[in-house]
Design a protein around this nucleic acid. Structure first.
Lengths: 356, 356
DNA sequence: CGGCCGCATGTAATCGATTGCATAAACCAA
DNA sequence: TTGGTTTATGCAATCGATTACATGCGGCCG
């Protein structure tokens, strides 16, 4: 209706409502400080002009951007999309925008993060990453000591950062235990990337479970990979070459598991008849894969929501949180059809090994 | 090193470098307008103070936020993540930030978009959506006539918006044709959601292919769904109930295809022996599904990149693009193992139908 | 030698909203 | 009535960077 050739400012509203800009501003951000009549006039003037607040002006004055920065190692990874979704919902409900940033490595990355944070484009940082190198983080922490920061999905030991995550060690242990409970005695693990904290934790959990059950943990059963389907696929070839082939595999994530299963099938092996496989994450496709994938479900929505909540709390009242926050969520084993009881002869054979 | 209790401003840099703020500003944004010596002193002062530019100040003055807004119908949908990734890369390389916004429906959504755009938080809008209702768009277009807008993935007829998309009709036709070429004569279609333009286009392509081949297009072969696995799964049950059961299915997207396949398997049918299925999108999992999925691959990275490019061009020099831009990309049929030649008897039967 | 040009830099207004302080009006209690 | 308190509002400074305009200076040409 109104032409907005020139953006309408708070001045225009003030003029039309016959009040000062201060009053308009107050009518918007502290309505109880202006009288009812004035408030009505201001509302009317706003409607008439089609005024929208200029965030840049407000940001400049208030030193806050009403925006959080979400740094993601790889947006393409479907694991993150649910989390991002939850973050966006939570942020939106609290009036915050969400800037996303793909993390590449090297200190160029740090510069970009800094740029956003120190330049008042974002009020806080939500770091979704299991692969940040320490150098980078130290730099970031030094330069941005005052900046609200929450790390999600991942633990950065001794960092003192606020953290929202799942207990990967424990969950990996339970996933492995599930295979043990089914009678498997030789269990391989598709390990995630070396530099990834989460991958390392899952490896630890896997080893703990084996250890506790008194089962062997041969190094050649640890198949290195990359958290993606291709590397899972590649791992399957190596798996076939292992001398004393395991009857079960715990994959560090669902993508690797799926790639692995796809590779197995290529080689004529059938899951779960020949090999049981348990994944991690419960991606959407897990329930509809062939076979439906047994996996550890991370509470991704909750994780994203709580991380965003914590970060925004931090932004809104800085300093109230004394001790570093540490929220640990529990993952849930979802048993589907990619795991089954070990064959008898396998169990017997394993028993010998254990006995020796 | 330096304590940044008080943010350092351009004033601080100016004082230390012994120049005016104007010179510092110029040294940063138009280096060739200051002498070499001065430039060096400014650089040194910047380094010494650890200065970073305050984007809010710049935005306010320049009326630009160096940020684009990407509106996504559903971030969780893995189809969008690759596109978002490409957008983010392109934007980053041109110094732009990316704000993401989940689209919900109703006019609340429009208000949120407007808020971002009119409040100078974002300079332009990239709309990734096949489900925007017309009412919303009309409103948006009216209120934000001056705002750079690029629609990706989707065509909004007669809108005059800049558009980057694939030819869904043609691609759907080719996907269907692939099934026809394999000898299938009764071909069902998993239709996407009603309100979705893309879904409608793919339906049209499917019908065109059938029509051109002189094949029947029974209404009960059009199984309505929602672009997600659950609805594909649900569709499989209805599919089994169809009287004269088709030997092939063209699914409007890979997720529906996967859900459908999962349902088929539940009912004891084997793909492609009993039913051939072709999907759309080529999600990452398609290649590793069981069976690997035949599908139309959309050039998602290219699409995202080009859309971002176009939008940022528009933002950076408004008005230079006279006619509405319209970029149409070609999809590519990826043949894998979920489609195979129709059984002889099916072909014969279909021939009768055709003849009748 | 004088006038003109252009380069490097400075001065100060400006972008739009917020907010500390001042002021005026209204209200209340004594 | 008066002094004091509360409430509503206005004035003007402020956030930090950009930029139109002004200035001064050196060089060049006639």
């Amino acid at each position: 209706m109104t032409t907005d050739r020139k953006t309408t400012t708070i001045q225009d509203v003030a003029r039309i409502a016959n009040v000062s800009t201060a009053t308009v501003s107050r009518a918007l951000s502290a309505p109880d400080k202006v009288s009812e009549g004035t408030r009505a006039r201001v509302s009317e003037a706003i409607r008439a002009t089609g005024y929208t607040l200029n965030q840049a002006g407000r940001s400049l004055r208030q030193r806050s951007a009403k925006t959080i920065l979400v740094a993601i190692p790889d947006i393409r990874n479907p694991f993150f999309s649910l989390i991002l979704d939850a973050i966006e919902r939570e942020a939106a409900s609290r009036g915050f925008g969400v800037l996303v940033l793909n993390l590449y490595f090297g200190h160029e990355t740090v510069r970009r993060l800094q740029d956003f944070l120190l330049s008042n484009r974002a009020d806080g940082l939500l770091l979704l990453d299991g692969s940040v190198d320490m150098h980078m983080l130290r730099e970031l922490a030094e330069q941005a000591a005052e900046i609200p920061l929450v790390v999600a999905c991942e633990e950065i030991p001794n960092s003192g950062f606020h953290t929202v995550l799942t207990d990967n060690v424990e969950a990996a242990e339970r996933a492995t235990q599930h295979l043990i409970d089914l009678g498997h005695r030789k269990i391989a693990h598709l390990v995630g990337p070396d530099h990834n904290v989460v991958a390392r934790e899952r490896l630890v959990g896997y080893l703990k479970a084996l250890n506790r059950a008194g089962l062997p943990a041969l190094p050649e059963w640890q198949l290195r990979g990359n958290f993606d389907m291709e590397s899972g696929f590649a791992a399957s070839a190596r798996f076939l070459g292992v001398a004393d082939r395991p009857s079960a595999v715990f994959a560090a994530n669902d993508e690797a598991a799926i790639g692995f299963l796809s590779g197995l099938r290529n080689h004529g092996l059938i899951c779960p008849r020949d090999v049981s496989v348990v994944g991690f994450d419960d991606l959407g496709v897990a329930a509809h894969y062939a076979p439906p994938l047994t996996t550890m479900r991370q509470p991704r929505e909750t994780l994203g929501r709580m991380a965003a909540e914590a970060l925004i709390d931090l932004v809104e009242n800085p300093g109230v949180i004394a001790a570093p926050l540490r929220i640990v969520l529990r993952s849930e084993l979802v048993v589907r059809e990619s795991t089954s009881r070990a064959q008898i002869q396998v169990t017997a054979k394993a028993a010998e090994i254990v006995a020796s």
